[in-house]
């Protein structure tokens, strides 16, 4: 197995072009497990640890995205996302806090989650919920491609990257409303998600974002649930009034989230449990975010 250690981003792109089957490695929290279990023997590893810009983030305004955006380097570890970006990216910060153990959070990154594209990756539901204009910066020697998050996940552990492309960063709009993330595991820490749910309120454009993890071949949104609740909020003028959503609508939202999943029975849980738990998490997280939103309305008034 070859071990490639580019010193710069340009060298990394050149190496990837030359060795399209090389597997990028940064924190190694996923890749090394696969290697140690002998599930995967890539012809080459492409070590990105020397490229310091991948562990940096910046905020700014970018073409094609509204408002302020965080451009998150692919290798920024979860520990730093939770510590440094919990105001700007609250959903992702909460999700990051559920990844593995403290040691894993010190090494694991969003770029790794996206590269692996496992349906159980904790970052995915938060990214999906954060909005349709979350963009993955995919680069190759041929140039830069901005992949909308909705088009990124294409199959079980498959993403829409080309063989010569590397993930450089993810551009995520700064939250314009409350966000939440919940995950089920069968112990109280260090678990792979049995299922997970992310939600983001977007008061600016009157939408609600969702993301479902570990309950379908790919991470996915609960589109009908999003449309239903956005419709409720708009029709009843709740964005302005900050009134109660009410149990019937919250119940319906939960049902629609559960219906959007296509879970399986496996060693981590049954399909029936996953649907059930998604509905509960959807109800609870909607309630939490809405309470936070109405409180912010009241304190602004």
């Amino acid at each position: 197995m070859e071990f490639l250690r580019p010193a710069t981003w340009d060298e990394a792109l050149a190496a990837k072009a030359e060795h399209p089957s090389a597997l990028p490695i940064s924190g190694g929290t996923d890749v090394m497990v696969e290697l140690n279990f002998d599930r995967h023997r890539p012809s080459a590893l492409l070590d990105l640890n020397r490229i310091s810009e991948l562990t940096a983030w910046e905020s700014g305004r970018y073409e094609g995205q509204e408002g302020e955006v965080i451009r998150l380097g692919a290798a920024v570890p979860y520990t730093r996302i939770t510590r440094e970006l919990s105001a700007e990216l609250p959903g992702l910060a909460l999700a990051g806090n559920t990844v593995g153990s403290p040691q894993i959070r010190n090494r694991g990154s969003v770029g790794g989650n996206l590269g692996g594209a496992s349906p159980a990756g904790d970052a995915h539901p938060a990214l999906l919920a954060a909005g349709r204009d979350v963009l993955v910066e995919a680069e190759s020697v041929r140039g830069t491609r901005l992949i909308p998050i909705d088009e990124f996940y294409v199959g079980v552990k498959r993403n829409s990257l080309e063989p010569d492309e590397l993930i450089r960063a993810v551009r995520i709009p700064v939250a314009d409303g409350p966000q939440q993330f919940s995950k089920i595991g069968t112990r109280n820490a260090m678990v792979i998600a049995v299922c997970a749910f992310g939600i983001a309120l977007h008061p600016k454009n009157g939408t609600v974002g969702t993301g479902i993890g570990s309950a379908a071949p790919t991470p996915r949104r609960a589109v009908e649930a999003e449309e239903f609740i956005a419709g409720e909020l708009a029709e009843r003028g709740l964005w302005q009034s900050g009134g109660l959503i009410g149990p019937a609508a919250i119940q319906r939202f939960g049902e629609l989230v559960a219906a959007a999943a296509s879970p399986i029975d496996d060693v981590r849980g049954t399909a029936a449990y996953r649907r059930h738990a998604l509905a509960v998490m959807a109800r609870r997280t909607l309630t939490w975010t809405w309470n936070e939103y109405t409180q912010s309305l009241r304190s602004a008034a």
Partner: peptide
């Protein structure tokens, strides 16, 4: 949240 079922997985804020 570390003191309640689910802990950091943030599944409950006291509900249930």
């Amino acid at each position: 949240v570390r003191d309640i079922p689910g802990a950091l997985s943030n599944t409950s804020h006291g509900e249930g």
